[in-house]
């Protein structure tokens, strides 16, 4: 390795460390200002809470033994809704690809469903399935499945026509075209859809927990707002951001392993 290259690499590393430093600094600064303002009475900590109160709230949730229960419930619902949404999404996308006429018939319905804010369906689902976990998971699935179908199907259609021609010149049947060409060709697209959908599912789950209001992080937030305990509300939001980050990181990690070849 030449001297210049070493200097170059060092510079890159230093830059990276600096960026991380700034990111943490910003966090501490924000938390510090927030805490300071609350302590000095500049803001009303009853409605805006404070970092130390959020921390205390989370600790007391932990002491009462319910912290991980709520986190787990939300995680479980999200993952279940996610798997169901993705499975159904792939399945329907394959059907649409296989039968172009079905795709044509359903096209306007998908357009409507896609632009419809799925939140609006929440109360209906609640009435049909009852105020229970089933409703929450169904909501998460519903919110993610339409986007999944449309995304995956679009990915399927992006296949190079020359490659299809090639497969046909080898007398490939539809199954073979699907498994040898369409699926592997859509790998990147599938991964993108996974990432998009995990956040969609989380939205669905929180929405569901708001409505069902029994357990989970969404319930904590809802309950906190009903009893005007802002500490609990903000603790819930903090927990939710952490969970969202973890889920996203896990998916990105899976993506890295899966696409590492190229």
């Amino acid at each position: 390795m030449s001297h210049e290259h070493k200097i170059y690499l060092r510079k890159i590393r230093q830059e990276k460390i600096f960026i991380h430093f700034c990111q943490f600094l910003l966090l501490f600064l924000l938390l510090g200002i927030w805490q300071f303002a609350a302590d000095k009475g500049i803001i009303d900590s009853f409605i805006s809470s404070s970092p130390s109160k959020v921390w205390d709230t989370i600790l007391s949730l932990y002491d009462s033994g319910t912290l991980f229960h709520h986190i787990w419930v939300t995680t479980y619902e999200t993952i279940l809704g996610f798997f169901m949404g993705m499975t159904l999404g792939v399945l329907v996308a394959v059907i649409l690809w296989w039968f172009p006429n079905v795709a044509k018939v359903l096209d306007p319905y998908f357009t409507v469903l896609n632009s419809l804010p799925k939140v609006a369906l929440g109360p209906i689902i609640l009435i049909w399935c009852g105020a229970n976990q089933k409703s929450i998971i169904l909501m998460a699935m519903l919110i993610s499945v339409i986007v999944a179908i449309l995304n995956i199907y679009q990915g399927f259609q992006k296949v190079d026509s020359q490659k299809i021609k090639l497969m046909k010149s080898f007398d490939a049947n539809k199954w073979q075209i699907c498994f040898y060409l369409i699926f592997p060709n859509s790998k990147k697209n599938l991964m993108e859809t996974l990432k998009l959908n995990i956040s969609m599912c989380l939205i669905g789950v929180i929405m569901g927990e708001f409505l069902v209001s029994k357990e989970g992080i969404g319930y904590l937030i809802m309950y906190g707002s009903q009893v005007f305990n802002l500490n609990l509300v903000i603790s819930g939001v903090v927990l939710l951001s952490l969970l969202a980050t973890v889920l996203y990181t896990v998916i990105s990690f899976i993506e890295k392993i899966y696409i590492k070849k190229d």
Binding site: Q162, K165, M167, D171, A172, Y180, P184, K187, D262
Partner: peptide, 18 residues
């Protein structure tokens, strides 16, 4: 029209596999 996700050998074996 080579398949980027297959090795050179696997690309060449595609027709036989199908």
């Amino acid at each position: 029209a080579l398949f980027e996700w297959l090795t050179i050998l696997d690309n060449c074996l595609l027709g036989l596999k199908i």
